[in-house]
Every structure is written in C-alpha cells, then in structure tokens.
Design a binder for these strands. Structure first.
Lengths: 356, 356
DNA sequence: CTGTATTGTGTCATCGTTGTCACACCCGTC
DNA sequence: GACGGGTGTGACAACGATGACACAATACAG
C-alpha cells in the first residue's frame, strides 16, 4: 500500500541516469553510444550512474528514435538440427560480441506468403540487417522482399546471384571432388552418389564435384548410380536401398550429407553388409552425427559455425561494398571408407563414354 | 534525385493507414487490437487500408506506449541440438499462432553474470513473459532475476519449486521405472545405469526411477553399476567403457539419454560386442538420433515439442494462477534390447540388501 | 420527454531514446 | 582583440504506437 512503486521493480530509464549523474539525457545518450565529445570526468560520472541503477537502454525506444535498432535477424529453413544449431551458434557469438540482439527466425521458403512474412518481420522489428542461411539464400520471394525494403543482408552459402550481396561460403564442388577422389584413390570405380535436397544449390555443386572427379579419373558417369535424396535420414535409407538393389551395386556410396549417410549405414547394417569391408560410405558436413554413428563417418568438415560467424561479422561491420569470403573445408577420414572388396568387378573406364 | 523518398521503400505507419481510411490513428489502433466498439463499416475501411499499405504495427512503438510488447523470450542452455530444436519448434508454433514474436536466447547457467544478463534482456526488449527450459528452470540466479522484475514466466520440465510458477513436465521417474522394468522383464538382473548431467533435475529423477524399479523387482542396487554422465556422446563413451570393464559387466545398459546411449553403442561396436545379443542398450528422449544409430534404440519417447508448445500456451493464455500439466511418455521398443545371453550369471537378489 | 447507460470516435499526452540545432567555452591566429 | 574551428553540453522535437479522457450519438428505461 505504499504510494510509490515498489523498489527494484522499476526499469531505470535514461532520465534516471541523467538525474543521478547531474547531466542531460542527451549526454547520457552520448556516453552509451560512445560519442567523441564527452569529457572523461562526465563519462565516468555517467557510467557510475548507469552501473548503480543497472540501466540498459530500451531497444524499442532506440529503434523508434534512432536510425539503428541494434537487432539483426537470422532466417533459416533447414531441417538438420545439427546444422541449424551450429549456424545459430556462430551468429550468436558474433552478435553478442557486438552487443547486438539476434532474432532467430524460422521461415518456410515453400510458403507462398513468405515474402509478406519477411516484410512483416522487418516492419515489426526494425531490424538493421538480415542474415540468410541456405536455402533461404536463394528464395526469390525473400530476396525480392529484402531488396524492396532496402535492408542490408548477407548470405551464408548462397547458390546464386553472387553479385547481389556479400556472402560467405565454401567450395562445395571442390569438397565433393575431394571426397570422390579419396574414394577413387582407395580403388573404387563404382561409386554411388546420393543427391541433396533439390532446393539447395549446394546439392548441384556437390553432384558436379562428384562428376568432375570421376571425369578427371577417366571413370564413366553412370546415371543409375546417382539417386535423389532430401538431406534427411529417411531419404538416405530409400536411396541406399535403391543403390544396393542394383544388379551391379556400388562398392562405395557418397551421400551429400551426414544424415543421409547414416541412412545408408542403417540399411547396410540391416542387410548384414559390413562397413567398410563390403561397402564404403562417405558423408558430408561433419556434424556431430558423423562421430556418433557406427562406424564413424568419413566426411567433409564444413566450417558451419565459422561460416555463420564470418557472415554475421560482415553484416555487423557494415562496410559498404560486396564482399565474398571462401572458407576452407577438410576431408575427414574415419572408419567408414576402405578399399573395395578384392573380388569386385572393376569397370573398364576406357571403353565407356561420359554421358552428359 | 527525386525530392521525396523512394516509393515502396517506406514502412507504412499507423498515421498513413488512418489518413487513407479517413479515421483517427486511435481508431486504427482499436481495429488492430480488436477493440469492441468499432462499427463494422469503419473496421472494414481500416482493414482495407491496412492491407493496401501492407501495414504492420511496430513492436517498438507498442512496447513503448502500451503495456504489452507482443514478445516473449525462450531461455535455454542445453547442449543437445535435437532437444533444443524441438523445444524451439514447439514454442514457435504456439507463438506464431498467437501473433507473438519469440526471442530464442541461449544463456549460460554457469555464468556468474547470468542474472544480470537476464535482467538486461528484460530491460532491453520489454518482453511480456519468459519461457524457461531445463536446466535454466532451476538456476537460482535466473529465477531470482525474474521474480525481482515481476515478469511472468513458465517452465518446461522444472525440477524444483513447483509452487513458484506454472510448468509442464513429464514423469521422469515413472518413465525410467518403465524402462528399467522393461529390461527386468526381458530377464536382465545386472543392469548398468548412466546418470545424466548433474545440473539437470531430470537426472536425479531418472536415477530414482531406475532404483525404484529394481527395488520393486527385488533386485539389489549395486553402486558399481551406476556411473556418471553428462548427456553427451563422449560421456556416454566414457561411462560405457567403465561399465564394460567391470569384472562382472552388466547385461544391459540404460543411459539417461539417447546421446549417451549412442556412446554405449559405439564402444560396443568397437569391442565387437553384438547389440542386442550380447548387450542390451536403452536410451531416453527418443530424439531423431534414436532412429539414426544402429541398432535403432529402445528408448522413452519424451514429448518435447508438446511440452514446449503447452508451456508457451500457458504463458500466452496469461491466466492467473499456477498451473501444472503432466504430459505422458511412451516406451518405444526398437532393436537395441533383448533378453540377456543365456550363459549369463544371474545375481541372487534375495541375498543382497539395497544400499542407500 | 428527460436522464442514464452503452456505443463509437477523436484529442492529447506519453513511453525512452536519438537527431538536429543552438550555444558556450577554449584555443590559436592574424 | 576579433575571428574561426574544434570541444563539450543542453533544449526540444521527433519516432509510432497506446492509455486516459472527453464527447457525441444512439438506445432504453422511467
């Protein structure tokens, strides 16, 4: 029943800080925004007051009055929890370092309204910029909405339109080429490939890398050995069944990500096929999953967290001009790949022609 | 070089809507907030204007002027990507249905500053309420900060202080009891147990359920069979090694979550132990992981997504009073459990006493 | 036909910050 | 000793919405 508000329950405003420090609110604003022209003495007094009151500037007031809100959004639509998790972590780390709040926002690129939703997000939240992760990076509706709103955005692993904005990516083609070459070097000539989700540009690039490596080694491309997938475990299972049911099944299967590779392992286990003695299996991404399954997967380490961190960094640095960074990948050799079984029929590369 | 701003680049404000509909801004506000006293005609005109201009009310202005911001935060600190992913999804689904924006915020319960960080979050963002997921649910510093700020919050699977606020949870004790009983029914008498992360209350409850089931079956509790873990794959590996190195190793291992169970599988594979013929392995949670490893895990399906959804629902309904909901779990029997090998020495329950 | 309650709408101050402008001081220079 | 440019600070009006209040129009009871 006390007349005033309960103590400690109030959020301190900039006015309270100003009063306590004996300066104007504008000066407090200058201090918290690191303005140049503030004497050391004033700054110290204001900082003491801020600390004493536990003052934190309201993002809402900031976005309303100022030109920046101190918030950026991360848009994703990816069904691999491990991948999203690392993307979020990388962006978080950079945002936190810059005292910027990150809004992680799932979107559905297949939603016809997705453009409107993104426009709404921008209008509602006043975000200063946006980070796109694959496959939102290549969703025309989203890109159109962002361009129309004139908002800054950067992209993690985009597949197209590299001229549009800054981006950070890895060389999916080269990485898939590396893995395929690894299998070829082990002696495999009959290598199955499981394509990624059709919505992701990386899917095409990985397929291209596979073909490039085969080509360079003079091994014929066999369409029957290349089957569609969707980046999830179940599609890996289906693809593995299709490949292993072939009259002449592959001696190695290269899946476009770890989840699908795990699906291949499951089918192999079920059928009593020993990995890697009877069949080599390779994944892509080096998510935690790759170490968790049996046997641990030979895979491509994609620096997801760093990709996200670097992308966020470009956005937050806010420099003009389009910038592209390529980050390196690593071939991680574990226990799921080995030379093909000795009795395997080897294809005769010279007599076959490459199909386009 | 045109004098005015570029068209389409403007965010429409409530003023623009009001002008177009020929009403005051206050009336527009009434329409978007579903106020009672607006004629159908006025409402229609305003709605048409809103649609035509693509108007979305600014959260910033709302939080500043009004008593609600339309935002809630989800705080988590959990290192299982699958778990977080489902928690996020459940909260998202409910938030989106209520036109509320969700801020997903990782926190570090071990950070001495965590209370300050939460206070800062509330002051900066003006969130209307907060959802806590385990183990943040039981972090004293966070709870103190929330109570002090007088902000509404609800908890997903809290371990303690049930009187404090509303919560949604499952019966971890009963679930662990169910799993242990399943193993006992298969004929196991020598069952290893891997405890969860010490920071999570669920860890204690699962251990308790394990002991209760043993007790009821008249099987002696053997401390050597119970080893610590931390809910991650690597701790599962370490725990499995410890258990399998025992002079009299268990015929079944019940891990407190799927990640650790996967660690057990890896060790078994490495040592040439066949699952489930030589050793039964059980997990907990039924994350995607349980289906992805080999053999697929017998586990407890924890309705994580529903837990999150229901928790968000309680918060957003915003009714007074503390409410607790228990959601059911399921015992999922897959291929990782079977009767013990026939030659196994069976412990003599009657002659042993239960150690506390 | 008057008085009161209900319905529908508008005016204005306000939330907590920042941008713009104004002003005062100090310094060195011509 | 007047002038110009760099420093340091404050007054004030925004930003885009909502809350409190006022008021008009209509409905209904006595």
């Amino acid at each position: 029943m006390s007349p005033g508000p309960r103590p400690g329950n109030e959020r301190a405003s900039i006015r309270a800080v100003a009063a306590r420090a004996g300066v104007s609110v504008k000066t407090v604003s200058r201090v918290i925004n690191n303005h140049r022209y503030v004497t050391a003495d004033t700054r110290a007094r204001v900082e003491a007051a801020i600390k004493a009151l536990g003052f934190r500037p309201s993002i809402a007031a900031r976005s309303l009055a100022g030109t920046r809100s101190g918030q950026v959004a991360l848009l994703y639509d990816n069904h691999s929890p491990y991948y999203i998790h690392q993307i979020q972590e990388g962006c978080w780390a950079r945002a936190q370092a810059g005292d910027i709040r990150l809004l992680a926002q799932p979107v559905d690129v297949a939603d016809p309204q997705v453009g409107e939703k993104v426009r709404g997000l921008i209008a509602e939240t006043h975000v200063d910029g946006i980070i796109l992760s694959s496959p939102v990076t290549d969703c025309p509706k989203v890109l159109a909405a962002l361009e129309e709103q004139g908002i800054a955005f950067v992209r993690i692993s985009p597949g197209t339109n590299h001229a549009l904005t800054s981006s950070v990516f890895m060389d999916d083609t080269q990485a898939a080429d590396d893995m395929t070459t690894h299998l070829i070097n082990l002696g495999h000539r009959h290598i199955g490939f499981i394509i990624g989700h059709p919505g992701h540009m990386a899917s095409d690039q990985r397929l291209f890398g596979y073909r490039r490596a085969l080509d360079r080694a003079g091994i014929a491309y066999e369409p029957a050995l290349v089957v569609p997938g969707a980046f999830d475990f179940d599609s890996g299972v289906a693809a593995a069944r299709a490949l292993l049911d072939l009259a002449e099944p592959p001696t190695a299967i290269f899946a476009s990500n770890d989840d699908m590779a795990a699906g291949v392992l499951a089918v192999a286990h079920r059928r009593g096929i020993t990995i890697p003695d009877d069949l080599s299996v390779a994944g892509f991404d080096d998510t935690t999953l790759a170490r968790v399954v049996w046997p641990p997967l030979t895979t491509i380490r994609q620096p997801v967290r760093e990709l996200a961190f670097t992308t966020a960094d470009i956005l937050l640095r806010g420099e003009d001009g389009v910038e592209h960074q390529r980050l390196g990948h690593d071939l991680i050799i574990r226990d799921s790949t080995a030379p093909p079984p000795s009795g395997t029929k080897v294809a005769k590369p010279a007599t076959r022609t490459i199909t386009t």
